[in-house]
Amino acid sequence: MKVLIFCVVLSASIAGTLQDVLDIQRQVCYTQWFDRDDPSGNGDYETLTDLRKEYPGKICSQPLTIQAVTMSGVAAEKSGQVIQTYDTVVGFTCVNAQQKKGNCLDYKVRFGCPCAPQVCYTQWFDRDDPSGFGDYETLEHLRTEYPGKICPKPLSIQATTISGVPAEQSGKVIQTYDTVVGFACVNAQQKKGNCLDYKVRFGCPCAPQVCYTEWFDRDNPSGFGDYETLTDLRKEYPGKICSQPLSIQATTISGVPAENTGQVIQTSDTVVGFTCVNADQKNGNGCLDYKVRFGCPCPFP
């Protein structure tokens, strides 16, 4: 989920309020201010359900705190008005009928979220075009087509049209836009025309400095395929691979990256290692002969 946040950097010694101190101790980072409703109807409703619909990806899944102020900056609790709801589960609501005099004021809210780790972004991916049912840039498909290029648990996602317009500003209905499924725009859901062509990238925790192992080539594809698995490699090369590799690289013996060979790669990750199965290849051709190496936290060995 994409969360825009501003970290609290005041030291406790100069913090202006008890809330500032608590936020610093808990490492709270705040979202932007949101003002989606006006009190001209039944009241002012700045609820999490509505805000998430209008600002997808802008609020963390489990806010730690909420702040509400009038548009002029007066804290909601000091406004003298009756506030119906003011919490991190529902959000903020002020009902006109509950006020002793006049209507609710116009409020804006922001949420305190856990401060995110430093984010490093992947390359941009554009695996699908909207010429069929829509534009599907899902993590499942992207991981199949770009093995090892996206971290296991992305922190954020960004989607834009090919020309660079953010998805949320493209005027199209976006079905899915999160770090669990990825991105999907369905043609049948559009009011006019089809989905635009989108590209996506993911924010991942910035990796520590990586030191690479030597290249390993323990198997040849003359049998069922080429199996350069961590289990087998650790048996044949004890102590040569760190316990939790950060990355994997696989190339043919001549140096062509596995993802550029046009072959079907069954596995290429830091849990299993690398496998290419002869039976998976098209035209009856077997796997090429591959070598692998692993990225480990420096220093290694």
Rank of each mutant, 00 (worst) to 15 (best):
S163K: 15
S163H: 06
V165T: 09
P166S: 11
P166T: 09
P166I: 08
Q169A: 08
Q169W: 03
S170R: 10
S170H: 15
K172C: 11
Q175H: 13
Q175S: 15
T179M: 12
G182S: 12
Q189P: 07
K192M: 10
K192T: 15
K192G: 06
G193L: 07
C195M: 08
L196G: 07
D197Q: 12
Y198C: 13
K199Y: 01
K199E: 08
K199T: 00
V200P: 05
F202K: 01
G203N: 02
A207H: 10
Q209T: 12
V210C: 13
C211N: 04
E214Q: 15
D217I: 12
D219V: 13
D219H: 08
S222H: 14
D226P: 10
L230V: 08
R234E: 05
R234W: 06
K235A: 10
E236A: 15
C242Y: 11
P245V: 01
P245I: 00
P245D: 01
L246F: 14
S247C: 11
I248R: 05
Q249C: 07
G255N: 14
N260D: 13
Q263G: 00
V264W: 00
Q266E: 07
T267R: 05
D269H: 09
T270R: 04
V271R: 03
T275G: 05
V277A: 11
N278P: 10
D280T: 04
N283F: 09
N283I: 07
G284F: 04
G284R: 04
